[in-house]
Nucleic acid binder design. Structure first.
Lengths: 198, 198
DNA sequence: ACCTGAACACCGTTCAAGT
DNA sequence: ACCTGAACACCGTTCAAGT
């Protein structure tokens, strides 16, 4: 009869994201997901070790999407200053457009225990996109010659902070437009990290 | 016999923080808290409407502590540049020293639904400490004359981003010392937001 | 007023059993 | 291989009852 065959895994991931998007992370129960997919609530265990493995998979897909969109923004901006600024905008835009992915990626649900190495690898790859762009700009004389990792930690913190506060609605209270804030941040980062004369 | 009288509320708050600190937010169960305080698991309902009200109270105390420590740092630094830099350091230091408070304050557990107005007021008061310091610096000609709220959103995002990533252990992977990162951030913020010549 | 114990409706997970 | 149904040990919350 209506076996889901190979695509139940895919359906479970999509339904998990959909549920978090609509009703929040606390509403994600294996029973509800199974019920909505017309499947036993234990069918999931054929595809994931447990609930946290499902969340890890969601986070992993999120990191792949993020890395792809960051790289695309860098390319679309033609590298250099325009490309880097575009990366910052793309980062926050990803978080705002995919809040459930982002929350699972950084909400502390996965990072608590030692996460599966594949997830760590994908997170590192996304971070590396930022480091690469920083090194490229330094070599073009567009950015301070601080250690790239330090600059990356700093800039990642800024866009992450904006993204988190935006997702959690902390800006709505004082009517802050997120796009405007990111534009302001990009300018201030540029001013604060410009290459200094030798 | 061993009634807790008026201080059960206090004991519940402390035990909640202790539990989150030691075992994580997912380990905070009303049953465990009650058991550890030698009290029925339903005794809590005499002091809090429900579990989320307990978390709201923890968050509220966190905002009071944060505001106090930010104001103290500003004063200790004698206002001006030194005081402002000290505020940034104090912010991240608070988060790292009180990760369970911080996670409840910003982890999206409280902000999801409409939070109680008292909590919102305390969060706003903490934010206002930053705005006030920014206005003072602008009047002293030490900071760009952008809208104070915009500068506050920007700087709050930076320290919040560093704090969150630090708490969730995302810096341990590439051996970043948080104090060093904050020091670097404070310098870059200063350079990026310095007053411009008229 | 403050606390208790039993009860209710949930949850993730396991496991023997079915196809 | 893939899915099911019953069972187990949890959870937050309610409520009549005790002091």
């Amino acid at each position: 009869m209506a076996y889901h065959h190979g695509d139940l895994r895919r359906a479970l991931l999509d339904e998990a994201v959909r549920t978090i998007q609509m009703d929040g992370l606390h509403a994600l129960t294996l029973r509800a997901v199974g019920q909505r997919l017309k499947v036993s609530r234990t069918a999931l265990y054929r595809h994931f070790a447990d609930k946290s493995a499902l969340l890890s998979a969601v986070a992993g897909e999120g990191f792949v999407m993020l890395r792809t969109q960051l790289a695309a923004a860098w390319e679309a901006g033609g590298g250099g200053v325009a490309g880097f600024d575009e990366m910052g905008r793309a980062y926050v835009r990803f978080a705002v457009a995919n809040p459930s992915h982002y929350r699972v990626m950084f909400g502390g649900f996965v990072a608590e225990r030692e996460p599966d190495p594949e997830l760590a690898r994908e997170a590192t790859a996304a971070f590396q996109t930022l480091v690469d762009a920083i090194v490229a700009q330094q070599q073009a004389g567009l950015l301070r010659r601080d250690p790239p990792q330090r600059l990356a930690d700093y800039i990642w913190s800024i866009v992450h902070g904006i993204a988190m506060l935006a997702i959690d609605g902390h800006f709505q209270h004082h009517c802050t437009d997120v796009e405007d804030l990111v534009a302001f941040a990009v300018e201030r980062i540029r001013t604060g990290t410009a290459a200094v004369a030798d």
